[in-house]
C-alpha cells in the first residue's frame, strides 16, 4: 500500500483526481503570463502577436501605478499596525486568566470567518459617516482589522512553544518586564510575528470587496483598479498587473524565507 507508484485501481484513481486538481489550481494563473505579453487589445489566447505595451501602460498610466503605490502603502501600514496590535492581543491573552476569556478571544478572531460582504457593508456604513471612507486612513483601518485575527493566531502559536522560564530568568537577572519583553520574549516569538505579518500583507494586498466600497478615483488599491478594468473594458494591462502582483507576492514570501534562513544560519 506504500509509495507513490500507483498500483491498485484506487491509487490510480486518486492520482487521476490529484492531477486534475493540480491542473485546476495552477493552469489559470499560468495562462495570464502569455496574455500580459499580448500585442493586441484582446484576451485572445494564445496571443498572436507579442509586446511589452501593457507593462509600459501599467507604469506610464498613473491610474495603474498610483494604485500599485496605494496598495503598497496600505499594505505596509496595515501590516505594521496589525503586527503590533496582534502581538499585544496574543501576549495579553496568554498571560491573563479571567472568565469570559473565550468570549474576548472570539471577539478578536471572529472577523476571520465573517463573510467578506458582511464585513464590507459593516465597515463601509460607519466609515462613511466618519468621513474616513475613501481615505488612506480608512483603507489602513479596514485592512488592519481584517488581518488582525491572522496575526493573533500566528503569534499565539509562537507563544505556545515559548519557554516561560526564560522570563523568570530575565527577571532574576534584573530585567524589568519591559526589558524582558524587548530582549527575550519578542526576539524569540519573532518568527510567529513575522509569519503573521506576511499573512497580513498578503491579505491586504489581495483584498477587493471591502476596498471596492472604500475606493475613490483618488485612493484606489491595485486589485480594485483591476476589478474596475475587467468590468469596464478589455484591457490586457490587467494581465500585466496580475503578473506584477504575483511577482510582488512571491517576492515577499521569498524575502521572508531568506530572512528566515539568514536568522537561522546567523544563530548557528
Amino acid at each position: 500500500m506504500r509509495g507513490g507508484i500507483p498500483r491498485s485501481p484506487g491509487r490510480i484513481f486518486a492520482w487521476g483526481m490529484a492531477g486534475l486538481v493540480m491542473l485546476w489550481l495552477t493552469a489559470p494563473v499560468l495562462v495570464l503570463l502569455p496574455l500580459s505579453f499580448s500585442g493586441r487589445r484582446s484576451f485572445r489566447f494564445p496571443p498572436d502577436t507579442w509586446s511589452l505595451r501593457w507593462y509600459e501602460n501599467f507604469f506610464t498610466d498613473s491610474t495603474w501605478h498610483a494604485s500599485l503605490l496605494t496598495s503598497l502603502k496600505v499594505g505596509l501600514l496595515s501590516t505594521a499596525a496589525s503586527m503590533i496590535l496582534g502581538t499585544m492581543a496574543a501576549f495579553a491573552l496568554h498571560k491573563l486568566y479571567f472568565s469570559g476569556k473565550a468570549f474576548v478571544t472570539g471577539f478578536l478572531l471572529a472577523p476571520m470567518i465573517f463573510p467578506g460582504v458582511v464585513s464590507a457593508i459593516a465597515i463601509f456604513g460607519v466609515y462613511l459617516t466618519w468621513h474616513i471612507s475613501g481615505t488612506l486612513t480608512g483603507f489602513v483601518a479596514a485592512h488592519t482589522v481584517l488581518s488582525l485575527p491572522f496575526v493573533i493566531v500566528s503569534v499565539r502559536s509562537a507563544l505556545r512553544i515559548f519557554d516561560w522560564e526564560l522570563e523568570k530568568a530575565a527577571a532574576s537577572l534584573g530585567a524589568s518586564p519591559f526589558e524582558t519583553f524587548r530582549l527575550v520574549t519578542l526576539p524569540l516569538i519573532l518568527p510567529g510575528v513575522l509569519i503573521g505579518g506576511l499573512f497580513a500583507f498578503v491579505i491586504s494586498f489581495d483584498e477587493v470587496v471591502v476596498s471596492l466600497f472604500l475606493q475613490t478615483p483618488f485612493v484606489r488599491t491595485l486589485p480594485v483598479q483591476m476589478y474596475l478594468s475587467v468590468t469596464e473594458s478589455i484591457d490586457p494591462t490587467v494581465a500585466a498587473a496580475s503578473t506584477i502582483i504575483v511577482i510582488v507576492t512571491v517576492a515577499s514570501i521569498l524575502i521572508s524565507m531568506l530572512f528566515w534562513q539568514k536568522r537561522k544560519t546567523s544563530d548557528a
Binding site: 489559470p28 495570464l32 502582483i245 512571491v250
Partner: peptide, 10 residues
C-alpha cells in the same frame, strides 16, 4: 498565496 483577484480574472 496568489491574489484572489488574479485568479478570478484568470
Amino acid at each position: 498565496w496568489t491574489s484572489m483577484m488574479v485568479r478570478t480574472y484568470a
